[in-house]
Amino acid sequence: MTKYISIETTNSGVLLFPNLQFFIPTLQSSDVIILGAGDGIPLSCVNANQQLIDNINEALVSAAQASYTEVVFPVTIPSGVEVLGLDFGGGGGDLCGYTITVGTNAPYPIQFTYIDEFGGFNSIEILNDGLPYGAYIAECGTMRIDQSATPVDPTVVFIDESPFELLVTPERPNR
């Protein structure tokens, strides 16, 4: 049965983590703990120590022992330890974000390919509906707009000027 442990963080609010089958909290360094098997989900911390890991394990055990109506189990953060939030650094680089809006008078939606916060490639379609769409990417590079197919419509607005590798190609006429 799904239960959650909750961890209060400085930058990401209160995070809930499901007690997945291979939920193994590990201390990677005083800056990072990993939740989950393998690469898991990294959490940025200040002065993280084994006591924090022990407290997470304790919450997991409490979750397993409790009745099915009790679902959320808070983790006690040890004194002197701070949990900052999810670590999107992808190796320590800055996180680059953007908001992109394609105006309703643009002739096409655009297909937008980027490196996401977990280091994988993602592609999303930005409709020409005038609404803002956002995503965060982990590796900042040089912004590049590919206009080889058709010039990008001037009504495309990039709100965030963070430098990153950006590939924008017009896709197909509005539906």
Binding site: T2, Y4, S12, L15, L16, F17, P18, N19, L20, Q21, I41, G85, L86, F88, L95, G97, T99, E117, P132, Y133, G134, A135, Y136
Partner: peptide, 17 residues
Amino acid sequence: SIEGGFVCFTPAIGSGF
């Protein structure tokens, strides 16, 4: 489908994501 549960988060306030 939420079998197994999910972690839900926003990368940053103001991200629209």
